[in-house]
C-alpha cells in the first residue's frame, strides 16, 4: 500500500497508526497463508478411500486364507477358497458384533468371542450366530482384488 505523501510528515500518533496498519496487514497475510499452505501440503494418506476397497493383489491372497479389510466404518472379511475363488462378507459376527476371522484348520469363518462358525458362503453353521454374514461383491481387475457393496 502506497501512503499518500502528506502522511510522511506524521506526528508520533500517526506513525503509530501506520505501524498498526502495516503490522496488522502482515499478521493478516500470515493468518491467511498458514491455513493455505497447510492445506496445500499433501496429507499422510495421499488418496481418498472409496466405496470399492482394494484388498491387494490376487497373488497376495493365497488359497485357503482370509484377510480383514476396513470398508468405511465396518470390517469386511475377504476369503479365498481352496478352489481359488475369492469371496467377501461383512466381518461383523451376527451374534454379538465381534470381528470374525478365517480359520484354515476349520476351513471356515470363525468368531473368537463365542466360537461361532460360518461356512465360506457366509452361512452360520455352528455356535450361537443367528444369521448369515452379509455378502459383499468381489471384483478382480488385472490381478487386483476389489470389494464393493452388494447392490
Amino acid at each position: 500500500m502506497e501512503y499518500p505523501p502528506q502522511l510522511k510528515q506524521q506526528t508520533s500518533r500517526r506513525s503509530f497508526l501506520g505501524y498498526i496498519l502495516a503490522g496488522g496487514f502482515v499478521a493478516w497475510l500470515a493468518a491467511i497463508a498458514y491455513p493455505l499452505f497447510s492445506y496445500l501440503r499433501p496429507p499422510k494418506q495421499a488418496e481418498v478411500e472409496v466405496t470399492s476397497v482394494k484388498v491387494g493383489t490376487l497373488s497376495s491372497l493365497p488359497k485357503e486364507s482370509g484377510v480383514i479389510v476396513r470398508f468405511g466404518n465396518k470390517p469386511v472379511i475377504v476369503v479365498r477358497t481352496a478352489a481359488g475363488e475369492v469371496r467377501a462378507f461383512s466381518a461383523t459376527c451376527t451374534h454379538l458384533d465381534c470381528t470374525v476371522q478365517y480359520r484354515k484348520d476349520f476351513g471356515s469363518i470363525w468368531c473368537a468371542c463365542h466360537n461361532g462358525r460360518y461356512d465360506l458362503n457366509g452361512r452360520n453353521i455352528a455356535g450361537p450366530p443367528p444369521r448369515p454374514l452379509d455378502p459383499y461383491r468381489v471384483s478382480i481387475q488385472g490381478g487386483d482384488v476389489f470389494v464393493s457393496k452388494n447392490v
Binding site: R70, N73, K74, P75, T92, D97, C98, T99, C113
Partner: peptide, 14 residues
C-alpha cells in the same frame, strides 16, 4: 477411532 471401538468391544467379549 470409532472403527477401533469395535476392537475394545471384541476384547471385552473375549
Amino acid at each position: 477411532a470409532k472403527y477401533r471401538l469395535r476392537d475394545i468391544h471384541q476384547a471385552r467379549l473375549e
